[in-house]
Write a protein that binds this DNA or RNA. Structure first.
Lengths: 340, 340
DNA sequence: GTGAAAGCGCTAACAT
DNA sequence: ATGTTAGCGCTTTCAC
């Protein structure tokens, strides 16, 4: 005989109370006599009782789970955010449901069918610029929505100031005396529409303008946010007659590719070519790459907390929070800071 | 008025059938007339109906979710496995519940309370060597269990042959003529007990023995599976009077640290010091690091498929699958293979 | 402070 | 092939 695990009725019987009292005691509701609660807790412990979450969810209408939509799981930034979100939710014993939408097909499928329906009570969207249709689709859920890396009136969001951060990076290059500064970026017309490329490019252009430097379209090359793409982009840049002396890559991974291309071309970094990235990815210190650090874990923690709060109070949590970034100078832009 | 989303009754009414028929039609059960099914499907589409998973789970007793226990989310290997598992489960419209147990406290809490109880119908454990108590705790769930990176009689598992793979790496160094070969490893006595350190160290020792080389305890240093740890370990090794000429690091991330320490010490790689890692981590190619490639995505895909199969048929899926690894020779051991 | 009872929205056994 | 009905295991009013 398969031993059926204890139900609320078993606990009620053992404690000599009704199931309503068991429910109230176990959830810590106020209107229970301390002595009763103690008896119930003891009975529950003795029977090794855990409530069935599905029964509770069905009865209460609350799902105690939040959905999170991410482009990928295995890229550093997303894995880091996800870890922070998971940790924060676990503390509130809330479940996390992950949806990866790494390509257009998955993304369209997600917004067409909205597989979160009837199974989460809030949703977090990471690093996606939403189309109007997508925004409407999410809004139709009538659930609290939290954005990481973008913002929307009426919805909670956390992010960094990508424009200002990119300016910080490019200003650093300018301060070092560079005048021909290239950009290795993402596709601002990408149908997948991630947020960073648009903003970081704007920061790049702002910094140039402010320094009175002309923006040269030849110095903007796509790196597609991959190391291989960054390498190809760098090769393209180095093939030009009037080479840049410095490069701002919109992500560290693209910067790694740029570093490699530079090394393969026999250029010294930073003497012949200065390179700065963006993220402060795990390997950036190792590769002695200057970069912009963003508080990745904090982004995840904050948005998770905001969603928990939003579900708790029906109002709440529609703030847009901007977290600070930091310029990290290493050897790829400044020989004096080199760790070698 | 908040518009309550459609329930199965609404669909039944609109289609002019009973709720049982709706349920059968929507789940694709065989005993429904094609014309009836069409009417139901049309009604469901019109009402934009989605079934409540919680009601279905409560009624059926199946949870359609698998739990996965991982040490961390943000390390490359785990993120990669997780992504593969998620993709495979999503295709079967199965949910994934993640539990990170990155430190002893979390790990103990997990096995003490077993928060998967009543909420998953199978569980995957990634890269943990289970204590007897932990194994018993999991067994007490009476659920299909799947292991990645270890194995257990009666449970499904996928992994690589860590011993053989480590031998492959060390044999490569031996073939290049090295005689003093160091090991940068994980702690085999670590209370967290991850699987790789034990096996990979055994492979290292086997290879030495087979080549008639004496194992020198001074050449074994802990790198704790981090880049910083690997760097510290390498420094320790380089400080010795009779330096090693080659190093096998049990992970690429430790190898990165070793590379850095070597560079800082002014040593040429591979001429003065050959370094080989393990994983074929995303940055390994970039850093021109020789390594052992393991089929990370396939590990995840396989174990997920095994769990789905195990839940479908009550028997099934207790196989231990070993996937092949591959020696990747790059410039860190063999100048001729250098990409620079 | 506690209990009785009516659901929550499905599935599955049984009846037709 | 379809309908009826009894749960699944909780939460939550409403009485007491």
């Amino acid at each position: 005989v398969v031993q059926h695990s204890a139900s609320i009725e078993d606990v009620a019987r053992l404690a000599g109370v009704s199931i309503a009292t068991v429910s109230r005691s176990l959830r810590g509701l106020p209107e229970v006599a301390p002595s009763t609660r103690a008896r119930v807790l003891a009975a529950a412990a003795e029977l090794d009782y855990v409530a069935s979450p599905f029964a509770a969810r069905l009865a209460s209408g609350r799902t105690s789970t939040v959905g999170i939509i991410v482009p990928w799981l295995s890229r550093w930034f997303f894995a880091e955010v996800l870890g922070a979100v998971e940790a924060e939710l676990r503390r509130a014993s809330c479940d996390l449901l992950i949806f990866t939408v790494g390509n257009a097909e998955q993304r369209d499928a997600f917004f067409a069918t909205l597989p979160v329906r009837k199974r989460v009570d809030s949703v977090i969207v990471v690093s996606l610029v939403l189309t109007e249709a997508e925004r409407d689709a999410l809004a139709s859920l009538r659930l609290p929505i939290g954005l990481v890396g973008s913002s929307e009136p009426g919805w909670a969001s956390v992010g960094i100031d990508d424009v200002a951060a990119a300016e910080l990076a490019v200003n650093h290059l300018i301060a070092l005396g560079h005048r021909r500064i290239a950009l290795i970026g993402g596709d601002t017309d990408d149908p997948m529409r991630f947020t960073p490329p648009m903003y970081r490019r704007n920061g790049y252009l702002n910094a140039l303008a402010r320094a009175g430097l002309a923006a040269d379209p030849d110095l903007e090359v796509l790196g597609y946010f991959t190391t291989a793409g960054g390498e190809a982009a760098m090769r393209t840049l180095l093939a030009q007659p009037d080479r840049p002396t410095a490069v701002f890559a919109e992500s560290d991974e693209m910067a790694y590719g740029a570093l490699r291309a530079a090394r393969r071309a026999g250029l010294r970094v930073p003497e012949d070519l200065a390179i700065i990235g963006f993220d402060d990815h795990a390997s950036a210190e190792l590769l002695d790459l200057s970069t912009i650090r963003q508080p990745v874990v904090e982004l995840g923690r904050r948005i998770a907390a905001a969603m928990l709060a939003a579900v708790a109070c029906r109002d709440a949590a529609t703030h847009a929070v901007t977290l600070p970034t930091e310029l990290i100078v290493r050897g790829s832009t400044d020989r004096a800071r080199s760790t070698y």
